[in-house]
Design a protein around this nucleic acid. Sequence first.
DNA 1: TGTACATCAGTGAACGCGCGTTCACTGATGTAC
DNA 2: TGTACATCAGTGAACGCGCGTTCACTGATGTAC
Lengths: 220, 220
Amino acid sequence: LTPEQTAVLSHDAPPLSARRAQTRDRLMAAATNVFAERGVNGASVEEICEAAGFTRGAFYSNFADKDALVLAMIEAGVAAQYAAAEGALGTLAASAPGSAPEELVMLTLSRFDALGPRHDGGRSSREAVLVQQELMLHAARVPALRAPYAAFVQACVQQLKGLITDALAAAGLEFTLPFDEALDLLNAAHDHAEVTSLFLDEPAPTLQRMVLAITRPIAR
Amino acid sequence: LTPEQTAVLSHDAPPLSARRAQTRDRLMAAATNVFAERGVNGASVEEICEAAGFTRGAFYSNFADKDALVLAMIEAGVAAQYAAAEGALGTLAASAPGSAPEELVMLTLSRFDALGPRHDGGRSSREAVLVQQELMLHAARVPALRAPYAAFVQACVQQLKGLITDALAAAGLEFTLPFDEALDLLNAAHDHAEVTSLFLDEPAPTLQRMVLAITRPIAR
DNA sequence: TGTACATCAGTGAACGCGCGTTCACTGATGTAC
DNA sequence: TGTACATCAGTGAACGCGCGTTCACTGATGTAC
């Protein structure tokens, strides 16, 4: 964690009671679903509360307004991101001895694929992508949310970097172009594939195709 | 133009009077600005009409509702796209004899860069990117807009393909990886750079860096 | 060309619904003795 | 442990604003003779 990221995460505010935290979580989970369906601006506080099983009063008792909820969701995203990345690293380390190189890369990448927009429980990937894009666009327009969102994205990229490095090394592959450019390209391809999938019926595994296109076995 | 694209463009409806077309254009131009600032859902019909210098009655006299306006904007985007692409091809053809190869590629690419989200008049690139993303997300959520938007994107990609091919040939460069993969990567890098720029103060010329990373002089 | 009339295009007032926000309240949870 | 009280957390009714939508209207544009 960089100092900036911890600063974003640690509000120097009084700690929340367990009950309060649970209410906030339920509201944020409900908001995720409603945002996916109607968009951040299209979602009413009423709708979010109904989906969470609360009244509107509860919402305003927990968040100053809708943007405060969005900010909390972005910050929760950072936390979830770290958990998911640790899981992916765990997968990589656990399956390292004795499996085919390509399999290993694909496994790690598919785990990573689940990073950015997180796949909690049974939520579909499509909804996750929609929410992520909604949060991004909303953050781009609201000045107070820009920095927190940028920090979130940077955290994701940082971890992608580590994962790709480790996965390629474990699989005995290397990039056919400069590392930084290759990483940016994969990151871009990943995001692009997600967005494109919103308009397709069945998702295409573009990321893996791209990895194969710009890597080769390490020459020894 | 593919049959599908002409089908999207040609509504078999009575032709509009010149005055009516002008009113629609003014409303659509105003909507572009308001959408960039507030988002499609956040923009009120009132706000759009005020920006265009009309009353709300005029709006409902021209569009059934807000989604009809969005659809018209997407379709206008297809038309604008073709015009811009022709311009880029013109640039390429005109400057083909007697300039340095790299210069030519950069020139053409920067012209293409202005394709997707169009830079009409003095509107900033930031606003154009915001609107484009807004339209995309909105189209992804509204079933009736998905197909038209997908057609629009496909038209863009088709033209990108042609432009890149010509530009590389004119500059004496070739890809270091399979053409289709290279094209997808560049497309993804282009979109990604635009979105990322929403969170940066000064835009980074990522696309050109990427082109250089995955091309080499043609071996003769 | 001029006049009379029909259609078109945008006006602006009006209606009603839904949403954000507030607040006095009540039951639940925690605390002191 | 039991009781009395304080604080906390969520309720639900109320208010008012703003928005989408409608519609009778008026001035502008076009057309027939």
